[in-house]
Design a protein around this nucleic acid. Structure first.
Lengths: 105, 105
DNA sequence: ATAACTATTCAACAAATATTGAAATAATGA
DNA sequence: TCATTATTTCAATATTTGTTGAATAGTTAT
């Protein structure tokens, strides 16, 4: 994964609204949810939700499919898995067994 | 993991500078790096780096230890692993085998 | 056609974050 | 003690991001 992609994904998930939306859709899996359901479920004004859905979709964390007059959104779970791989790669110079806990702060 | 903690971690990693710092330190593992080394390595002005190191440390993604007049920073790898678990939990209503790829965007 | 419904875009404004140089703090060594 | 080095804090400013209501566009049903 490219650095810029990873940054955009973290940006996407760094807002409370967007993280809630993404996790809600991760739970729903393939079924997904239409925009209005998401708005009701999370109690976010539609205009604001739309702003966040757009950001998530542009960064490919969500896919969107038209369904009559509804827009159905789904989480892009494989992308999330790629991100996880990116975060843990090259851990400890290739010796992940050395990843010991630094408890002090 | 709490929602607010997850958000603060994503916020931390949503800046190019901070993501670079974190990944650099993940690579270094237990060895870590002192602030000046990080500044030189990433070509970030010390005053700006300090701002980002503070954010990362407050959100517990980094630990810091004084070493003479140096400050040695290390990545909190276990916290990163907790975050990953948080992201994937409850996937597909508890049926992660259903997490099929939504390729369309 | 028109009315009802779903969702997005737009423009204005509010709020949060990032960046910088100068000054301050703290540790070391001459 | 005094100069040097490492890093952080501060204050000013620049930039980015988030929120809202009103207007718009597309879809369906009458």
């Amino acid at each position: 994964m490219e650095n810029t992609i990873a940054i955009s994904i973290f940006e996407s998930l760094s807002s409370g609204v967007r993280l809630d939306v993404f996790r809600l859709l991760v739970k729903k899996g393939m079924e997904g949810m239409v925009a209005g359901e998401i708005a009701t479920s999370l109690n976010v004004p539609p205009t604001n939700l739309s702003f966040h859905l757009k950001a998530l979709t542009q960064n490919r964390l969500l896919s969107v499919e038209q369904e009559g007059r509804f827009q159905r959104y789904r989480a892009n779970i494989p992308l999330m898995l790629d991100l996880i791989a990116y975060l843990t790669e090259e851990c400890c110079e290739g010796h992940p067994e050395k990843c010991v806990i630094p408890s002090k702060n």
